[in-house]
Nucleic acid binder design. Structure first.
Lengths: 192, 192
DNA sequence: GAAAATAATGAGTCGCCACTCATCTTGTCA
DNA sequence: TGACAAGATGAGTGGCGACTCATTATTTTC
C-alpha cells in the first residue's frame, strides 16, 4: 500500500520529468480537451516526445492518470463537505462548485460524460459516486432533498450540468438560474 | 424564395446521389458521431468519395446540412405541439421526446452542445429556440411552469439532458427519473 | 571515477483522413 | 443519335498525430 517501496524506484530526473509531464498534461487537456496532441504536452513540459511515452505508454494512460487525480481531488472535497459542512447545503455547494470548475476541466467532463472510454478509472469513479451518495444521504436526512431521489440521478444531473457549462455563451447568470431549477427539482415540495 | 428556380438545375443522377449522400451521412453520423469519416459516408451511400466532395466541398458543409435538417424537423415538431397539444404537457412531452432521440443523434447533440463550431447553422438554431420559447410561454400560461423561468434556461436543461442521454449505461429508468427531477424543478411549488 | 543501469532524445514510421484532379461516364438536348 | 456539358470515379497528396527505436546523456553504484 505504501507507494514508496516500489520494486524499482525512479531515477531523480525521471521523477522530476514525470511530475512535469503530469502538470503539463493537466493544463493542456484542460484548455484543449482530450484531443490535444501528445506533442503539445511534451512541449509544455519541456521534454521530448519519447519521454512522455516512456512514462505513459499510450495517450490513454496519460489521460487516465489525469482523470484519476482529478477524481481523487473531487472525492476528497466531497468528503470534507460531508464531514464539516451543513448537511442542508453541502450537496448544493458541491454541485455548484463542480459545475463552476467544469469549464476549466474540459477533459474530465468530456471523458466522464462521453463515449464509453474505459482507461481504467472505474475505481476512482466508483469512489466518487459513493462520496456523492454520502452528501445526498445527509441532505435527505436533513430534509433538504426529497427521499426518493437516488445517487445515480444526482450524478446524472451533475454530469449534465457540467457538460453544458462547457458551452460557449454560458454566462454566470444563466448558469446560476439553471442550477437553481435543478435544485428546485431536488428539494421537497414544502421547502421554502 | 422558391428553391426550384435555381440558376442551374441539377442533373437527374446528381439529384439522386445528393439525396443518397444526405441519408447516408445522417445514418453514419448518428451512429458514430461527427468524427466518422467521409469515406464511410461515401461507402454507405454507394458513391465514390469524390462525389461527396462535389456536393459538399468540405466535411463541415455536410455536417451543417444534416444539422440544419434536424433542427428544422425539431422546430416543426415543437410548433405542431404548440398548435395542437395540451399546453400543460406539451413542453414536457417535447423535452422527453427529444432526449429519447438524443442517443440516436449523437452528431447533433455533440455539435449543439459542443465547442463553438459554427458551420452556418445559427439561423435554424435561433428558430428552434423560438419554438421552445413558444412551448414554454404556453406552459406558463397554463400554470404548468413557474413564471420566472426563461427560454434560455429550458434550452440549457434540454441540451444537458440530451448530452447525458448519450452516455453508456443510461437505462430508460434512470432517464425517466432524471427527467422527472428536472420537470419538478420547472413546476410551480403548489403543483400536484 | 568508471562501468552498468536507467532515462532522454527526436527523427522516423505508420495509419488515418480530408481533400484534389486527370480521366472516364452519363444525362441532356437539338 | 451524336456532341457536349455536367457529373462520377478513385488513386493520389499532404498533413497530422500516435507511437518506435537507435543513439546519446545522466544517474547510480561500487
Amino acid at each position: 500500500m505504501t507507494p514508496t517501496d516500489d520494486p524499482t524506484p525512479l531515477r531523480a530526473d525521471a521523477r522530476r520529468n514525470r511530475e512535469r509531464i503530469l502538470a503539463a498534461a493537466e493544463a493542456v487537456f484542460a484548455e484543449r480537451g482530450p484531443s490535444a496532441s501528445t506533442e503539445e504536452v511534451a512541449a509544455r513540459a519541456g521534454v521530448a516526445i519519447g519521454t512522455v511515452f516512456r512514462h505513459f505508454p499510450t495517450k490513454n494512460d496519460l489521460l487516465g492518470a489525469i482523470v484519476k487525480t482529478f477524481m481523487a481531488r473531487l472525492t476528497e472535497e466531497a468528503d470534507a463537505l460531508a464531514d464539516h459542512g451543513d448537511p442542508r447545503t453541502a450537496l448544493f455547494t458541491f454541485f455548484t462548485r463542480m459545475v463552476e470548475e467544469a469549464a476549466a476541466k474540459r477533459t474530465v467532463v468530456d471523458l466522464l460524460a462521453g463515449a464509453g472510454v474505459d482507461m481504467g478509472v472505474a475505481k476512482p469513479v466508483q469512489t466518487f459516486r459513493e462520496a456523492i451518495g454520502t452528501l445526498l444521504a445527509r441532505a435527505q436526512g436533513a430534509g433538504a432533498v426529497r427521499q426518493e431521489i437516488r445517487p445515480d440521478e444526482v450524478v446524472a444531473l451533475l454530469t449534465a450540468a457540467c457538460q453544458v457549462a462547457l458551452q460557449a455563451g454560458w454566462d454566470p447568470g444563466l448558469r446560476r438560474r439553471t442550477l437553481k431549477i435543478i435544485f428546485e427539482g431536488l428539494r421537497p415540495k414544502d421547502d421554502g
